[in-house]
Design a protein around this nucleic acid. Structure first.
Length: 139
DNA sequence: AGCGGAACGG
DNA sequence: CCGTTCCGCT
């Protein structure tokens, strides 16, 4: 049997998204990079079939709960061909997003994170310049 | 459960 | 760069 671990990408995208279109845009990169974790998270959140695994939290826009951390880690490991993936490692990757301001933790709520849409919009709208501590190019 | 340093690899 | 692996600390 195939491991199905090649470059399989791109969902159909023919459903009711509860998410803006720019969010899961195919990364405006020259070479074509690997799938990023937050893209993958968005991909799961987009699909009804994973609602028991990961789902949006009603109330706060962009907030989501990982209902089954082991399963999310397993799925992520499958996609990245990392069979040894677990929630401990996955969550470390999520923690790196804090500084990048892609995500932050919803404190007090177990397995709950929240997307920072302000940051998310940036790669798609490069003209929105909010550079916190970067070098300001001559622009 | 959650955090963040450190080494490492594609 | 973007995680992955490992781990000590809270």
């Amino acid at each position: 049997m195939k491991t199905g671990c090649s470059i399989v990408e791109k969902p159909e995208g023919g459903g009711g998204y509860h998410f803006p279109d720019w969010a899961y845009k195919t990364e405006s990169s020259p070479g074509s990079r690997q799938i990023q974790l937050w893209h993958f998270i968005l991909e799961l959140l987009q699909k009804e079939e994973f609602r028991h695994v990961i789902a949006w939290q009603q109330g706060e826009y962009g907030e989501f709960v990982i209902k089954d951390p082991d399963e999310v880690a397993r799925l992520w490991g499958r996609r990245k061909c990392k069979p040894q993936m677990n929630y401990d490692k996955l969550s470390r990757a999520l923690r790196y997003y804090y500084n990048k301001r892609i995500l932050h933790k919803t404190k007090g709520k177990r397995f709950t994170y929240k997307f920072n849409f302000n940051k998310l919009v940036m790669p798609n709208y490069p003209f929105i310049n909010i550079r916190p501590n970067g070098k300001q190019e001559t622009n």
